[in-house]
Amino acid sequence: MIDVHAHWIPAHCFEVPGGVTLRVRDGEVFYGDVPLQLSAGDLTDPEVLLEQAAARGFTASVVSAPPISFALGSDSAAVEYCARYNESLGALTRNAGGRVVALGNLPLGLPGEALAMLDELASRGEFAGIAIPPMLGRLRLDQDPMRSILRGASRLGMCVLVHPMQLPGPGLGHHYMQNLLGNPVETAAAIGAVLLGGVLDELPDLRICFVHGGGAAPALLGRWDHGWRARADVRGDLTDLPSQAFRRLYLDTLVHGVDQLRLLTAVASDAHLIAGSDHPFDMGDRDPAFHLREAGLDPGGLRAGALNFLGERGAAWINDQKGPIDHG
């Protein structure tokens, strides 16, 4: 199988401009004062990435910056940071023998520079697409500048992975609720923006994946369909029912339970389901094959979905490199 949801950060990118600096204390990585329950090597060592992928049944990984490494500032430091991150990820990918495909990091707070960097990444074979947050400040994916980034990705044939950022919110300041509830809600809100905002109608060739199984969205599709039928302001920019448009999205299978996977398979397109691990974070899946097998998902179908998401550029990179290649 191919893991479409894996993360890596080089040590020289621990300090994110305008963000929170990652620090290592007694061998453990902290995000500010929050322990990530990771060693520095878990995040930075390419061999750990490859070994863990193999241990979980993956023979190729699609690697992106975790959301703590999204540089969203609006100054030149963000541009320099993203360029430095992308250069390091590109080098890792070129040296991984076809076992890694890269998703680039963009300085989204500077839309012109971000689009220029997107064009540059598209000229490099090891980059199949980009990873982005579900919103930029208060701006949704159906609003500029994020919509212009999606237009650029579609024009260039680059795929897009949307990853939540664990943003603070009311009632979420306890028991890791910013992650447990906040992340699924962020992802659902982003999906709502893409569907109801008409992004897929404008960009029918856009290949966009929402991680963690689309967050809370699968459980909300019935409500969204009702709203689409009942209210003109809901259906104004979307020609199909939300549940029908939802099947055009790619979703990873990281939902942490067989019943949740069965819900996902009931509402998503089989051809658009792809496996993900969230390596190396604690909310990842240490044994993804178990849940996939128990839910009756075919590894070959998940591999095909991943290759479709990656497009010709990403599929060629996996298949053309020397080394252990995934043949399903």
Rank of each mutant, 00 (worst) to 15 (best):
Y176N: 13
V79Y: 02
L200H: 03
I318S: 10
H163P: 06
L22S: 00
Q260Y: 14
A54S: 13
L141A: 05
V101S: 04
L273G: 07
L139M: 14
P280D: 05
H7G: 01
R140Q: 14
A304T: 09
A306M: 04
R286G: 14
L110V: 12
L50D: 01
G192C: 06
N179I: 10
L92R: 03
D33C: 08
G41Q: 11
D278Q: 09
W8H: 03
L167V: 11
V29E: 00
L156S: 01
P111R: 12
G301F: 03
G98I: 09
D45W: 03
A193F: 11
L172N: 05
A78G: 02
P66H: 08
L118H: 01
G311Q: 11
R138F: 12
L302C: 11
G104K: 05
A306I: 01
W228S: 04
V101I: 09
G328K: 13
L167S: 12
P67S: 15
C209H: 06
D144N: 14
V267N: 05
L297W: 02
G215Y: 00
R25E: 07
D142M: 03
R155A: 10
A316L: 14
D142R: 09
L206S: 02
P164D: 04
G300L: 06
D119T: 15
R155K: 12
V211L: 04
A71G: 01
H174V: 14
L196A: 02
S154R: 10
D285S: 03
D287T: 15
D240E: 13
D205C: 09
D42Q: 02
A54Y: 11
L310N: 05
G19S: 06
A54I: 04
A60E: 02
N86G: 10
T21A: 12
I68W: 00
F70N: 00
M117A: 15
Q321L: 08
G236M: 11
Q166N: 14
G19C: 01
G197L: 09
S69T: 05
A315V: 03
F246D: 07
K322M: 14
P204M: 06
A114Q: 08
G305V: 06
I318L: 15
P107G: 00
G157S: 03
G173Y: 11
L103A: 00
L121V: 00
R247C: 06
V162M: 00
D278H: 05
A289P: 09
A266Q: 13
L195F: 03
M146T: 08
R223F: 13
E47T: 09
G214V: 09
N319I: 08
R151M: 02
V24S: 04
L261T: 08
Q52I: 08
G214T: 12
L118V: 02
A122L: 10
Q52K: 15
T265K: 13
I9N: 01
A6V: 01
P35Q: 10
R207W: 12
L310H: 05
P46W: 01
L50F: 04
V267P: 03
A96S: 15
R293M: 11
V162I: 00
Y250F: 15
L241M: 13
W224M: 14
A96P: 08
A60C: 12
